[in-house]
Structure formats: C-alpha cells, structure tokens
C-alpha cells in the first residue's frame, strides 16, 4: 500500500504546492540522513585517516540535513502561525462572532452594517470539490482499468504520459478553456448564465483526474496476480473479474485518491474563480453564479488594507482552507493505515 501512495503523492505535489504535508517534508530529509549514516558505518578495517575523513563527511551530512530540516519546520510553523494569528484576530480583536462567520449567509464586508457570513463560500468550496471528485472518480477508474487490464502497452506508452501531462497544464489555461468552452456549453443547454458550481466542478474534475488515475493505476498494477487468475479460473469473464474482484480490491486506494483529489480541488483558486461567477451567495442551482473560499480570497485581497477587519476576515477564510487541508490529509493517513492492515 505504501508503494501505491508514494508515486501519486509525488504527482500531486508537482501539481499543487499546497499539498505536501509537514510530515512528508520532514520525512524526506530524514531518510537522506539515515542513508548516509548507514553508508558511513562499515569502515571496520580501513586506515585511521580515511576513517577520520569519513566521520567528517558524516558530520557534514548530518549538520546539513539538520539545517534543511530546521528551515523547513520553521517555515511551515511560521506560515501556520501567521495565518492563524491573522485569521483568529477577526474573532478576538475585531469581535466578529464565529457563529455568524460559519453560519451566516450574507457577505457584506463594506456594508452598513458589516456582515461576515462565510457559509456561501464554504458550501461553494465543498460542492465544487466533491462534485468534481464524483465526476472524476469513475473516469479515473475506467482510465486505470484501460491502462492495466485492457491495453497495457498503449496505456503505458500513450495514455499515462497524456494523463500526466494534464497535471502539468497551468490552472489559468484550465480556467480559460473552461470559460470559453464549458461555460458557453452549459449556458446553451441549461437555464442560467453557465457560470457556477457545475462549470467549476467540471474544470476541477479534469484537473484532479491525474491524481486519482495515478493512484488507481498503481493500486491495480500492484494487485497480486493470483487475484485475477483466481477469478478467471472459476469461469469469470473479464468484466466479471473487473467488477467483482478488482474493483472491491482497489476501492480503499481509490478512496485515498479521491480524498487527495478533493483536497487539491478544495485549494485550487484561479481556474475556479474564472468560471464560477463569484456571486457571494448560496446559489439555487448548479448553473448559477457562486463563490468558493479560494475565489473570494483572490478577488478581494487586493482591495483591502492590512490590519483592517476586511483584511483579517480573508485570513480567517485562509485559515479555514488550511484547516480543511489538514483534515483531508488526516483522512488520507487514516485510510492508508487502514488499508495497510
């Protein structure tokens, strides 16, 4: 299971700089240091001078990695501290009520009276990212089946690189395509302007497709060979084997992929902001203008002054994003541990 997760974490890192967890960031340099110390050990019958330079090397390696680790840890904690202190100031300094913030549906930071109801953004974020995962997961499962079961050769040489390419496309391009293709399409088919949660979810579903597909493909190619053979030997057709044997066996890994995908969708700002319409209320339909936590932050941050309540409340939204990311990562860890057993 470990091997299943690692390559995909790599790919999601490439696509989303917000994804790496503190745990991962720390564990990588630590691996390096343990490699070096074991590499330096077997020096039993070497001359003394060599031994000294070796231990000098070891000292250098250790110090170097320790410095890197400290820098990483300090950076991460500073970011968290900064966001938290700003974000919490809204409630403790500016006196905005937390309950209003979490449950209020009216967002008017410059209104008379000021109201800071963030519920429209919270629902917007959850709806777009969960909907995106619902669109993406079946696609990813089929793509993975295709690449591992149906046409492994074509899958490895053509499909896999193409899907990995999706991860490298900048989000502004996704947003642009979404705005020029998906939004007009939705407008012509459904009532409304086309901008909205549906458009955001479709764009996001393509963006998170590589994450889920990579995890699903890894899980499938790591299945024990006996699993499939056992099914075929009982007279199962290929489709029966896929649906009754392979699907249940890769489901836990798929779930991990889906949560990682949701986490990635949750944090995406630019592409969503371009197609969602940015109206600060809870929409009545999927094809009506809405907002997400990220889109409101990117849109408003230029118009506020540091230290004001209007600015602080954006930090509260950021803190919310950060917390959710931690929650997602926590879920992934729990899923991983469960499937290890």
């Amino acid at each position: 299971m470990k091997a299943t997760i690692e390559p995909s974490t790599r790919s999601s890192e490439g696509a989303n700089p917000a994804a790496p967890t503190p745990g991962e960031a720390v564990s990588q340099p630590m691996n390096v240091s343990s490699n070096q110390s074991t590499g330096g050990k077997p020096s039993g019958n070497k001359p003394v001078a060599r031994k000294r330079s070796r231990s000098g090397n070891e000292w250098f390696g250790k110090t170097y990695t320790m410095i890197c680790v400290s820098v990483l840890i300090i950076t991460i904690f500073s970011i968290v501290y900064f966001v938290a202190s700003k974000g919490l100031a809204t409630f403790f300094v500016n006196g905005v009520s937390l309950k209003e913030f979490l449950t209020g549906v009216k967002w008017a930071p410059d209104g008379e009276p000021q109201t800071f109801g963030a519920l429209p953004f919270i629902t917007g974020s959850f709806m777009t990212s969960i909907l995106a995962a619902c669109i993406s997961a079946p696609l990813a499962f089929c793509a993975a089946i295709f690449m591992t079961e149906l046409m492994p050769k074509f899958g490895k040489t053509v499909m896999q690189p193409v899907i990995e390419l999706l991860a490298g496309i900048p989000s502004v391009v996704y947003g642009f395509v979404g705005l020029s293709v998906i939004v007009p399409f939705l407008r012509s088919v459904f009532p409304g302007q086309g901008l909205g949660i549906a458009a955001g979810a479709i764009v996001l579903s393509i963006m998170i497709l590589p994450t889920i597909t990579t995890i699903a493909t890894d899980a499938m190619s790591n299945l024990p060979r006996g699993l499939k053979e056992g099914s075929y030997a009982l007279g199962a057709t290929r489709w029966q084997t896929i649906s009754r044997s392979i699907l249940p066996a890769v489901l836990p890994a798929m779930l991990t992929g889906v949560v990682l995908g949701i986490a990635r969708a949750f944090g995406e700002a630019l592409a969503v902001q371009m197609v969602i319409g940015n109206a600060p209320h809870i929409p009545n339909s999927l094809f009506e203008s809405a907002s997400t936590l990220t889109s409101v932050i990117t849109l408003s941050m230029g118009n506020t002054i540091m230290g004001t309540v209007q600015n602080n409340v954006l930090w509260s939204l950021a803190l919310m994003l950060l917390t959710m990311t931690f929650v997602f990562i926590f879920i992934v860890r729990v899923l991983e541990r469960r499937s290890l057993r």
């Binding site: 699993l227 030997a233 007279g235």
Partner: peptide, 17 residues
C-alpha cells in the same frame, strides 16, 4: 468460461479473494 467452470484450478500460492 464454460470450459473453466468444468476444469477448475488451484494455484501454488493460496489466493483467496
């Protein structure tokens, strides 16, 4: 599929689902 139903197989490594 009909053939494999009539000719069953047990493998070297136990491979329960």
């Amino acid at each position: 599929e009909t053939l494999r139903k009539r000719v069953g197989m047990v493998f070297q490594q136990p491979n329960p689902f």
